[in-house]
Amino acid sequence: MLYRVTLGILLLSWLLKPHDIVAQTENRKMFVFYSVQHQPLSSSKGASYAIETEYLDSVRATERVYWAPQKLRETATFSNLRLRRRDGETIVYYNDGTIKRREQYRDGVRQGEGFAYYPNGKLRRHDRYDDRSRKSEECFDAVGNSVDCDTLALRDVCPNAEIMPGKSAPIYFPSKALKLGIEGVVKVNFTVSRTGQLADVQIVESPSHILSAAAVDAIRRAKWSIRLDNCDPVDVRYTIPITFAIK
C-alpha cells in the first residue's frame, strides 16, 4: 500500500511540473474570422480577413493574417503575443501574393535589415536598424533610380503632386576668412517658394560679411524641396544657422 501511495505522489508531482503545463499549449492553433469593423465572427460569412495563431508555448506564437478568401497578407512571430512584441521576421504581402515588406525584430524592436518592394518586385526601400534606431536608408523609384526617402514618402501621400527632391551643397570656408582668423555662426533667413525657387534671402546674424557671402552662396547652390500642405505646394520661410569653425 505504501508503495502505491508513493508511486501515486511521484506521478502527480511529475504531471504538475511547469514544463508539462507549457507542453499542453504547444502547437495549439486558433483560426478566427473578422469583419471590416474588426469584430470576430463565428464563420467566414461576411468576413473581411482572418487570423491564424499558432502558439509555440504559453506566450510565444506565430501569427498569419489572411485576406478573404484565404490569401496570405502577413506573417509574424512574437516573443509575447499578448504584448504584441514581435521577434524574428515579419513579412507583408500584396493582394497577389508578392512580397510588400520584410522586417526583422528583436524583442519588439526593429533590428537588422528591412526591405520594401513595389508590386512589380523591384526594391523600393532598404533600411538598416541597430541599437533601437535606423542607421541607414536607401530609397528607389519604380524603375530603380535612387530617390530621396522623404520625397518617396510624400509621393505616397500625394501621388499626383510634382515634388522636387532637396539636395544640400558643400559649404566652402573663404580663404580670406581663414587668413584673418574669422569664424562664427551665420544665420540666414530665406523663402522657398511653391515652385522650389529661393527668394528674399536675408542675413539675420553674422560675424563678418565674408562669411555671410559664403553662407548665402551655399544656400543658393542647394536644391530645396517643395513643401506641401494638404498636397498643395506652399511658400515656406526658413532660418538656418551655418557654422564656420577654424580647427
Rank of each mutant, 00 (worst) to 15 (best):
residue 136 S to N: 08
residue 112 G to C: 07
residue 23 A to L: 13
residue 101 R to L: 07
residue 191 T to L: 02
residue 59 V to F: 10
residue 210 I to W: 04
residue 176 K to E: 14
residue 169 A to W: 11
residue 208 S to A: 02
residue 220 R to S: 12
residue 220 R to K: 08
residue 199 A to Y: 03
residue 239 T to G: 04
residue 178 L to Q: 11
residue 244 F to N: 02
residue 54 E to K: 13
residue 149 C to D: 01
residue 199 A to E: 12
residue 132 R to L: 06
residue 144 G to Y: 08
residue 27 N to K: 12
residue 234 V to N: 08
residue 188 V to C: 06
residue 231 C to H: 00
residue 86 R to K: 15
residue 190 F to P: 07
residue 193 S to W: 01
residue 87 D to S: 13
residue 115 F to Y: 09
residue 66 Y to Q: 06
residue 223 K to M: 02
residue 3 Y to R: 13
residue 44 S to H: 09
residue 225 S to N: 12
residue 18 P to F: 08
residue 170 P to D: 12
residue 98 T to N: 13
residue 224 W to G: 06
residue 237 R to I: 14
residue 187 K to I: 05
residue 113 E to Q: 10
residue 52 E to D: 06
residue 134 R to E: 10
residue 111 Q to P: 04
residue 17 K to M: 15
residue 28 R to D: 09
residue 10 L to I: 03
residue 246 I to R: 08
residue 200 D to W: 02
residue 67 W to K: 03
residue 201 V to L: 08
residue 246 I to A: 10
residue 176 K to P: 04
residue 217 D to V: 00
residue 80 N to D: 15
residue 221 R to Y: 10
residue 9 I to W: 01
residue 169 A to H: 12
residue 192 V to Y: 03
residue 148 D to R: 06
residue 3 Y to H: 10
residue 101 R to T: 14
residue 122 K to H: 14
residue 111 Q to M: 10
residue 118 Y to Q: 05
residue 195 T to L: 05
residue 180 L to R: 03
residue 168 S to I: 02
residue 33 F to L: 01
residue 68 A to R: 13
residue 222 A to Y: 01
residue 42 S to D: 10
residue 196 G to E: 01
residue 50 A to Y: 08
residue 43 S to H: 02
residue 245 A to L: 13
residue 247 K to T: 07
residue 83 L to V: 14
residue 71 K to Q: 15
residue 64 R to D: 09
residue 11 L to A: 14
residue 98 T to S: 14
residue 168 S to Y: 01
residue 39 Q to P: 04
residue 29 K to N: 08
residue 191 T to A: 02
residue 213 A to V: 07
residue 218 A to I: 04
residue 164 M to G: 00
residue 124 R to M: 06
residue 213 A to Q: 10
residue 20 D to H: 15
residue 69 P to E: 08
residue 105 Y to L: 11
residue 236 V to D: 08
residue 136 S to P: 05
residue 37 Q to V: 10
residue 139 C to R: 05
residue 147 V to Y: 01
residue 69 P to K: 09
residue 10 L to V: 02
residue 240 I to M: 12
residue 235 D to C: 09
residue 61 A to H: 14
residue 128 R to C: 01
residue 73 R to M: 14
residue 123 L to W: 07
residue 25 T to L: 14
residue 32 V to M: 04
residue 32 V to K: 06
residue 122 K to P: 12
residue 208 S to Y: 02
residue 130 D to Q: 11
residue 12 L to H: 00
residue 159 P to L: 05
residue 167 K to V: 00
residue 80 N to C: 11
residue 193 S to K: 10
residue 67 W to Y: 13
residue 226 I to V: 13
residue 195 T to M: 02
residue 27 N to M: 12
residue 179 K to I: 03
residue 138 E to G: 05
residue 243 T to G: 02
residue 112 G to L: 09
residue 135 K to F: 07
residue 3 Y to Q: 10
residue 124 R to N: 05
residue 207 P to W: 00
residue 141 D to G: 05
residue 204 V to M: 05
residue 102 R to Q: 13
residue 19 H to E: 15
residue 65 V to S: 12
residue 119 P to I: 04
residue 49 Y to A: 06
residue 227 R to T: 12
residue 41 L to V: 09
residue 21 I to R: 12
residue 93 Y to D: 15
residue 227 R to L: 13
residue 57 D to I: 11
residue 52 E to C: 07
residue 7 L to T: 10
residue 24 Q to K: 11
residue 78 F to Y: 15
residue 36 V to Y: 08
residue 187 K to S: 05
residue 219 I to G: 05
residue 186 V to M: 00
residue 58 S to K: 13
residue 23 A to E: 15
